[in-house]
Design a protein around this nucleic acid. Sequence first.
DNA 1: TCATTATGCATAAGAAAGTTATGTATATTT
DNA 2: AAATATACATAACTTTCTTATGCATAATGA
Lengths: 119, 119
Amino acid sequence: MYICPMYSSELLKGTLKTIVLNLLKEQGKMYGYEITQRVKMLSSDKIQITEGALYPLLHALEKQGEVTTQEEFIGKRVRKYYSLTEKGTVSANEKVNELSDFMLTLRFLLNLDSTSANG
Amino acid sequence: MYICPMYSSELLKGTLKTIVLNLLKEQGKMYGYEITQRVKMLSSDKIQITEGALYPLLHALEKQGEVTTQEEFIGKRVRKYYSLTEKGTVSANEKVNELSDFMLTLRFLLNLDSTSANG
DNA sequence: TCATTATGCATAAGAAAGTTATGTATATTT
DNA sequence: AAATATACATAACTTTCTTATGCATAATGA
């Protein structure tokens, strides 16, 4: 049986924060578990954000004033929703632009550019 | 005066090994300093590989049998040339393919696949 | 009904892979 | 002569993950 391989973990390093900020920007507000599931789904299981990586990141973003939180109770269980502040929105845009630029540079460095005019 | 900004260092993590293996594959053989300079040039100074990152990586690659070395003297100064073994060539191809795939996934995740011509 | 899986948060210990700093030495440029 | 460039190497430290653990509620299935 074929197991869809995840990317080696080094690759996620450095992009996780960008992914999370961008999701929050697009979705308005999300809670931690939801973020892990959405990334898993959107990446066809090739990116699985671990809780040990995500929650500390979210806490750090809150501490730095890039996100605010809002708790909601589903029955007896709490959900902690995160949404971007203005600062976080700026940061999200910057991060996405930088990563996009970086990927262009990488494509050039690795000679991955198709023969046509784009890149 | 405008300083061309380097990418935040997290981004390089996870891609350095791929970059080095791919350069060696394309160039046949290279020495450490040459690698740093080529990446700097090809990236318009936006990626600067530090020696503290590069040399330990090259030593690890040699230990794992992915590269072999060959010393050459330029006057009294030594240059240590690295070239890929067969194993290293396989590894280079795998790494580049994985990174390429990962970037596609990222573009999708981050909604960077604009319908128009730019990104 | 009881076990398993899913949902949902959190944190601590450890590993990986960089940065920064330092060291040594030769060659070139100003 | 001093500064910069070339060329290697390694140690201490930091960042940022993974892995492991813990707690608790909800849903599913045998």
